[in-house]
Design a protein around this nucleic acid. Structure first.
Length: 888
RNA sequence: GCCCAAGUGGUGGAAUGGUAUACACAUCAGACUUAAAAUCUGCCGCCGCGAGGCUUACCGGUUCGAGUCCGGUCUUGGGCACCA
């Protein structure tokens, strides 16, 4: 660190003093010099390059959620998780594992595209700059990453496999096109997945940017994730994940079991109305039915006298903004009678059919049987429209269902032959009875919706799909190479009034690259910027081998048909769905991942990232992984066996860090002022890894002091040689030896369980003990350095070298615990009277219970409280305490 | 409304049912220094001169003994939200 180095100005008195005091000696703790030196050393020697699968060592794959390389650079939250995984990785390496700790970039995405729209600069350029900056920042913090395996989702050799997986999904009927209304964000100019839309007080908003979103019918690619709903729930059980995340996914998938019941219509023959219910037991209490305003039968159900009212209602609902429709404050139920009646299959009662927007077309059958006595929503509606409320489930205490719905279980009442039975028995019996009559069956429903997979953007993976006419589709030869990915059922949709069919490229034609475009601006109608590039979109397509050539050229031959490319691109989640696989084999041009490396490395042993991805990335990635397992590409059904979420680092004010609050902590500044080691260790010392905790720049002083004390323990600050305190022949106090082994034990265990804050505390305790001792053995200092190295690798490398070692400390192994050194001959025992501590005494560990009790009774501080009182009970816990219980 | 997590000194936090407040930060006092920085030492939950009493959001329970287990309340944070 140079101060006052300006040549043009004479040194001021202040800089003169600073210069004299900051003068470099060979022993100066000059973190910025040695941090840079060791980072260069690791790079030059590929210290953290993963060893080949043939190395004979057990593998350990530690994975960070890779970052989106934003223009803002690294956030302080990034190095929190990355330091945790780095400590684990460095520890495992020391413990003899072949460690894979890779890093990459989730680099497709909207911010780069918005920057492109604003500046005209190609998003790839901006992305490259951002990646370079992120890499620089990560290297500045000294992460032990195998940079040879760096990847970006925007690399052609990466996204060709993203496209390949999509084509596999397409081939297996799991990708289709839908024109149902979807969330569209005018500000972002694109549609969003359900998972990307937040319900806020102001109404539905985009997760990114908090812009208002609205429902629009736009043609979309959709992935049939619902086909995996059951597997995605079941798979959770065996995973070592935070319970909260498992629960979140479970709730998001939202499995509910019940029955589908078919109601005959009283006045319309050949039509029936199916409903989904989780409470078939309450069927006798169904007093009306409700169909969603969008229900396909609505016009048939509506009688002429009700037509005007129903039409008006449907129009009102349609014109209702999503804001109004989801406004929970104005929860008052609305609806209109259709004029039709249904017949209750259990008792033949005629019940009216209403339409109301509290019934959603997107769930179940879009119609319900309403049991107001036992459902809050139905109860509110019945009260609003004065419909009958009939109790069919009883309770222990008398209740009045006219006052309030009863949603608990109880014996059946008013239910004919079922009276007196429990609700659960009745459920089974009624469903079985209905099934026998062909009027019902067991049914399962999920809240999970299919995954909206296309975006009207430029900066994403293009779909390797083209649209052709139905008649051309029929010409595809039986032995065509495009059958590699052709689905059994054609995927069709309407484009410009034409019925068209989707055809795939083949593996040979991947990757399908993005064309250069004149403008990145999406159209307000929801068309991608790619749609404005006819040279790219309009092609001749060879139905024998999938080759394409621009339509501006003459038709090359009879097998070539007119085709237009899909112009949507994939969402950002696509690339992050499988990147953990590609790290195993980044350079493989033939396969997504080679079988041999896959066999050795398998899945990540440890995966760390923010809890904000609990339902998005982590659900999508599980879906893809499970699919690839089902089609035998992968040997395991689940990608991430052990998952951990680091907590948020809050600003110094305890609020979430944000530019607008002005409480953002910049890692560059911290590293410059305090060093990478101090940043890493302090992030880990702040508190439990999983907890959200405020940053406090003042606190870093404690870590800096610790690191400098560690330095001074080993190195003489003036000479730079090994400290004269380090002495191989002098004896060490027993307490220091014991503390060292206690520290080996605790740091090892705490790293394994990710309790880095307490590991650091223990090292500080060891430091306090080491400084009290007049001399310290070289072996002790070496063990100390090896324990601290995963946390503060730079200073420990420097110490290791000054102690005379030639190799990196990362190759020096892990200190061995000698349990015999932990044994203590004397222990502190507590004497209590009536559970209150009255005295503590040092005793021999082997002391008998009787002797210990006698000691307690003889203690004057104890006697004072038991004197003259009858002893009721004596509890003796050897090595811990004596508790004497007295009466009075 | 439903589901979940968390409430411990001035601050971040520690504690297999067994000495609550480890380890740090900050403040204060002292040593070194012409001085400052750095470094080192000490004090540091509340009340009390003391003996001692009280204290882990609040109320109750189990236990010889509860921050820890059980029941209830409050507060904060997160998720879901007309999912039949």
């Amino acid at each position: 660190m140079r101060v006052g180095s300006s040549k043009s100005l004479p040194p001021s008195p202040t800089t003169y003093y600073l210069q004299s005091f900051m003068e470099q000696t060979p022993g100066t703790y000059d973190f910025s010099a040695f941090e840079q030196r060791w980072q260069a050393y690791w790079k030059k020697n590929s210290t953290f390059r993963t060893e080949p699968t043939s190395c004979g060592k057990p593998k350990y794959y530690v994975l960070d959620m890779f970052p989106y390389p934003s223009g803002a650079g690294l956030h302080i939250g990034h190095p929190e998780g990355y330091t945790a995984s780095d400590i684990l990785g460095r520890y495992k390496k020391a413990a003899g594992f072949n460690v894979l700790h890779p890093m990459g970039w989730d680099a497709f995405g909207l911010p780069a595209e918005q920057h492109a729209i604003a500046t005209g600069e190609h998003p790839a350029l901006q992305t490259r700059k951002n990646i370079d900056n992120f890499r620089r920042q990560l290297q500045m913090i000294g992460f032990g990453i195998d940079w040879d395996r760096e990847l970006s989702t925007t690399d052609e050799n990466y996204f060709r496999w993203t496209q390949w997986i999509f084509l596999k999904l397409f081939r297996h009927g799991l990708a289709y096109v839908s024109e149902k209304p979807v969330w569209f964000c005018p500000a972002l100019g694109t549609v969003l997945a359900n998972e990307e839309v937040l319900n806020t007080k102001e109404g539905p908003r985009s997760e990114r940017g908090n812009h208002p979103v609205e429902r629009r019918p736009i043609r979309q690619w959709v992935l049939r994730i619902t086909a995996y709903a059951d597997k995605l729930i079941e798979g959770l059980d065996a995973l070592d994940w935070p319970d909260s995340t498992k629960r979140l996914q479970k709730n998001w998938i939202g499995k509910s079991e019940g029955a589908e019941v078919t109601f005959q219509l009283a006045d319309i023959a050949n039509e029936s109305l199916a409903v989904f219910t989780t409470r078939p037991d309450t069927l006798f209490g169904a007093t009306y039915m409700v169909v969603a305003p969008e229900h396909p039968l609505i016009s048939k159900l509506t009688t002429p006298t009700q037509k005007a009212a129903v039409d008006t209602y449907i129009a009102t609902v349609r014109n209702k903004s999503d804001l109004e429709r989801t406004d929970l404050a104005a929860k008052k139920k609305t609806g209109v009678f259709t004029g039709s009646y249904a017949v209750n299959p259990v008792n033949g009662n005629k019940i009216p059919i209403w339409t109301a927007d509290y019934v959603l077309m997107s769930y179940g059958t879009g119609a319900i049987m309403a049991v107001p006595a036992h459902d809050e929503r139905d109860w509110e509606f019945a009260k609003e429209f004065k419909l009958p409320i009939i109790q069919v489930v009883g309770s222990k205490e008398p209740i009045d269902v006219q006052e309030k719905p009863w949603t608990e279980d109880g014996p059946m009442v008013n239910s004919g032959a079922f009276n007196g039975l429990s609700a659960s028995e009745t459920k089974k019996k009624i469903t079985a009875d209905l099934a026998a009559k062909g009027q019902g069956k067991l049914a399962v429903n999920f809240k999970l919706r299919d995954w909206l997979f296309s975006r009207q953007r430029y900066w994403g993976e293009p779909f390797p799909i083209l649209w052709v006419s139905q008649s051309d589709y029929a010409k595809i030869p039986a032995d065509s190479e495009i059958r590699e990915f052709l689905p059994k059922q054609p995927v069709t949709c309407q484009i410009n009034g034409q019925e068209v069919c989707a055809v795939p490229l083949t593996s040979k034609q991947l990757p399908l690259k993005l064309p250069e475009v004149k403008s990145y601006q999406p159209s307000p109608t929801g068309d991608s910027p790619l749609s404005k590039e006819p040279d790219w979109t309009e092609v001749w397509y060879n139905i024998a081998d999938g080759e394409t050539i621009a339509q501006s050229k003459p038709q090359p031959g009879p097998l070539w048909i007119k085709a237009s490319r899909e112009t949507n691109t994939m969402p950002q989640w696509a690339g992050s769905c499988w990147y953990y696989l590609r790290y195993l084999d980044t350079l493989n041009n033939k396969e997504i991942v080679g079988a041999d490396v896959l066999k050795y490395w398998g899945n990540p042993d440890f995966y760390i990232g923010g809890a904000e991805h609990a339902v998005l990335h982590l659900l999508y990635a599980r879906f893809w992984h499970r699919f690839l397992f089902d089609i035998k590409v992968l040997p395991t059904p689940e990608p991430f066996q052990k998952l951990f979420h680091q907590g948020l680092i809050l600003g110094e004010d305890g609020e979430k860090m944000s530019k607008s609050r002005g409480n953002v902590v910049n890692p560059d500044v911290i590293v410059k002022e305090h060093g990478a080691d101090a940043l890493r260790m302090y992030l880990m010392f702040l508190g439990p890894l999983e907890a959200s905790k405020p940053w406090n720049t003042d606190g870093i002083a404690g870590i800096t002091r610790f690191l400098r004390r560690l330095w001074r323990l080993a190195v003489d600050e003036t000479t730079g040689k090994v400290s004269s305190k380090v002495n191989d022949t002098a004896a060490e106090p027993e307490e220091l030896v014991r503390e060292l082994h206690k520290t080996i034990q605790k740091v090892t265990k705490d790293i394994e369980t990710l309790q880095f804050n307490t590991a650091i505390s223990q090292m500080m305790i060891l430091m306090n003990a080491a400084e009290k001792s007049a001399t310290i053995k070289r072996a002790t200092v070496e063990d100390f350095a090896r324990l601290a190295a995963p946390f503060a690798p730079h200073v420990c490398e420097e110490i290791w070298q000054r102690l005379g070692h030639k190799e990196s400390i990362s190759t020096a192994g892990w200190p061995k615990l000698d349990e015999s050194k932990l044994v203590e001959t004397t222990v502190d025992v507590v004497f209590q009277v009536n559970g209150k501590v009255r005295s503590t005494t040092k005793v021999d560990k082997a002391i008998s219970k009787d002797a210990l009790l006698a000691l307690a009774k003889a203690d004057p501080a104890v006697q004072k409280f038991i004197d003259g009182k009858p002893i009721v009970k004596e509890i003796i816990v050897p090595g811990k305490l004596v508790n004497i219980v007295v009466a009075g």
